[in-house]
Computed example of a mutant assay.
Amino acid sequence: MDRELRGETRARDELVDMLITELKRIRDKLTELKIQIDQTQNVVEREQTRNADIFTELNTIKDNLETVPRQDIRAKYDEAIEARFRLTTMRGQLEKFQSTREYLEREQQMYSQLLNRLQGIEDLPQPQEDNKDVGTKGQINIVRVIQAQEEERQRLARQMHDGPAQSLTNFILQAEICQRLFDRNPARAAEELDNLKNVASITFQKVRDFIFDLRPMMLDDLGVIPTVRRYVDSFREKNDIQIKLDILGEERRLQTHREVMIFRGIQEMMGHARDYANATDISIRLDIGNNVVKIVVDDNGRGFDTESAFSNEDGHSQDPRIQGLITLKEKFELIKGSVSIISGETDGTSVRIELPTSD
Rank of each mutant, 00 (worst) to 15 (best):
M1Q: 06
R86V: 03
I241V: 14
G315V: 14
D213I: 02
T227I: 02
Y77P: 00
L23R: 07
I172G: 04
V145A: 09
Q71L: 12
M1K: 07
T9D: 01
R252M: 04
N51P: 03
T203N: 11
E330D: 05
T88S: 14
E32W: 07
F304P: 03
N131G: 12
Y276S: 05
D130P: 09
E66A: 11
E192H: 04
E57L: 13
T88F: 12
T256I: 12
T136Q: 15
E82Y: 09
L30Y: 04
R285W: 10
I322N: 07
E150N: 15
V143C: 02
F55N: 14
T100P: 02
P226D: 02
R117N: 07
Q139W: 12
Q98I: 09
G7F: 04
E82K: 14
I73W: 06
R50P: 03
I172R: 10
D240N: 15
D28E: 15
L245R: 02
D123V: 12
T100V: 14
T67D: 06
E22W: 06
L5M: 06
K331P: 01
V351N: 01
I20T: 04
T89N: 07
E152F: 08
Q154T: 06
F212G: 00
M90I: 10
S350P: 00
M218R: 13
R153I: 11
N278R: 11
K62V: 08
L33N: 03
D53T: 08
A187V: 07
E95A: 11
Q159E: 13
D233T: 02
E333R: 14
L222H: 09
E307A: 12
R180M: 09
I146R: 03
M18D: 06
E191F: 12
A190D: 13
D319V: 10
L58F: 02
E107C: 12
D133V: 15
Y276H: 15
T256L: 14
I140A: 11
P69F: 10
I225H: 04
T88Y: 11
E237D: 15
I322A: 08
Q205D: 05
T280L: 02
E250C: 01
M90V: 08
L15I: 02
P186I: 05
K96W: 14
A80N: 05
D220W: 04
V43C: 04
V68H: 08
A75Q: 15
A165C: 00
A83H: 11
I211Q: 11
P164L: 05
Q48W: 05
N131L: 14
Q48C: 04
D123K: 13
Q179M: 05
D78A: 09
S283G: 15
R84F: 13
N239W: 05
K336C: 01
V145R: 04
Q139N: 13
Q119T: 00
E152S: 09
M218V: 10
R6P: 00
K238M: 02
E354P: 01
L286K: 01
N278Y: 11
D314M: 07
F85E: 14
D220G: 07
K62W: 07
G135M: 15
Q126H: 10
I282E: 08
Q48Y: 10
F85V: 13
K238Q: 06
N291H: 15
F304A: 01
L33S: 03
R91W: 03
A11S: 08
I225P: 02
T327L: 00
R252H: 07
V44L: 03
L15K: 02
Q318Y: 09
